[in-house]
Write a protein that binds this DNA or RNA. Structure first.
Lengths: 110, 110
DNA sequence: AATTTTTATCGTATATTTACGATATACTAT
DNA sequence: ATAGTATATCGTAAATATACGATAAAAATT
């Protein structure tokens, strides 16, 4: 009964929702923070900082990659992740563009 | 096995994740857009604009209320919803504060 | 008073997410 | 070559999210 209805919404709505979804879990916010702090980050460092199993962290990293918020590269046996600032700029732009233009601060009610 | 680990992250991370979660579905983005466009909005109007059942829209509205992104008031038999701009300002602040301060655009790798 | 309208909630089915351990694979060090 | 490290993926269990119809409750209309 719960079939996916996301296709029935327009592209802009889905784009914003997808970006938001990527940071909708504190673990992923924490991962981004850790990567941003160091400018780049080895997977193992992220795992050691988070209170989650290695496989779980790997799963979260995969989601951030899918959303384009980070990039990853193999460095020998290790994996290195960086923030993809380009995508973040797009995210922030979508976010502020969407809400700023209608913020009249003049509600009729509520 | 999948017990909730969200409490193990700090308050700021959870706050941002919760806001993001509220707009992580295109239906909720569409609802916010509709409310913002009219400055205020009767529930029935939102339902008639979205490709979802009334009960489903009501559920999404409840989530937006929970996150504090909208306010609601009863107007006779109808319900009126407005954007809670105060919360949105906080959301936007958390978002940009969090990422802007570390955006050096100078990645070591990737 | 009876009917209709409006909306929230309940019950429920299905889909997705989150989490972990186990394992596979590829690199590194001995 | 062998053993150890690092990490992605697989399988799976549990939790949460999404969607709908049915129903309840309150207001509006007839």
């Amino acid at each position: 009964m719960a079939t996916n209805k996301k296709d029935l919404f327009n592209q802009k709505e889905n784009l914003l929702a997808n970006f938001a979804n990527a940071i909708s879990h504190p673990a992923r916010v924490a991962i981004l923070k850790e990567i941003a702090k160091q400018e780049s980050c080895i997977c193992g460092e992220i795992v050691s900082v988070l209170p989650l199993a290695q496989s779980t962290v790997s799963q979260h990293l995969k989601e951030l990659l899918k959303a384009g918020l980070i990039t990853g590269s193999i460095d020998g046996a290790k994996s290195c992740y960086c923030i993809n600032w380009k995508t973040f700029e797009l995210f922030e732009k979508q976010f502020s563009e969407f809400f700023a233009k209608t913020n009249t601060n003049n509600p009729k009610c509520c």
